[in-house]
Amino acid sequence: MATVKVSEAEKVYILHGIRDDLRVDGRGCEDYRHVEIETDVVSNTDGSAKVTLGYTAVLVGIKADIGKPKPMVPNEGYLEFFVDCSANATPEFEGRGGEELGTELSNTLYKVFNNKHSVDLKSLCISAGEHCWVLYVDVLLLQCDGNLYDAISIAIKAALFNTKIPRVHISADEEGGKEIELSDDPYDCMRLDVENVPCIVTLCKVGHRHVVDVTLQEKACSVASLIISVTHKGTITCTRKVGGGSLDPESIFEMTEAGKRVGKALHAPLMALLQQEESLGKKRQKVGFLG
């Protein structure tokens, strides 16, 4: 992660603040920063979304391609993830500097999203064992100010909601093989059901308390964090501990409970916002980066 240096005195200040539930920017331990979401920002993708969380900015593009299903699960499609930590965010990511972080992020995303509980993979199947839809999810990190997992997961959920997969017609040709035809009509498409797509909540342990949505300064004061992916029903689908420090079992339990609470509360406003944006339809003024 892009790092900032913090002096000892600043660390003490931040620690005491979190202990008293008053962070440097006035938030409580479980408050998020201001979030802005917009979908359909990149035109030659099948679905896209741009999310700004404080200063962190993430752009997700989804392309749907026809591929061969995995041998173990012949009647399911799958998702492929790629996270690009671009040099735009910080000069440290120039060249191959951002590869390590990118690989770590995409591995976690595979675990969280590429399973049948999060996304209905069966709906991505075209003909069992031969053809299926592969969704290539590309995440582009534009600005980095902490809390990448949360921003990326919100963006992925929004992009999946926005994805329009063309309908296919399978016809048999003369030799008995199958021919796939994509529907020409741009409105004849399939949408994905994103109800069960989880959102990731990162909780960092600072002192004796845990904090949600940390900035880079607060991250420098914490030694360990817990990443939890939570669905709208409050079910936890994946947990992972990151960081060099250690956590004791009670903290993990407390953090999991807090994560469940916070994560569950994220889904409702997100879906409402996405529905609102969709209902604006053609009248919506596309802002993108020109705002």
């Binding site: 030659n44 896209s48 752009l59 593009g61 690009d84 040099a87 120039e94 060249g95 290539y136 590309d138």
Partner: peptide, 12 residues
Amino acid sequence: QYSMATFSTAER
């Protein structure tokens, strides 16, 4: 440094 987003072209 010049780079292209992976979704920028028609072919990924």
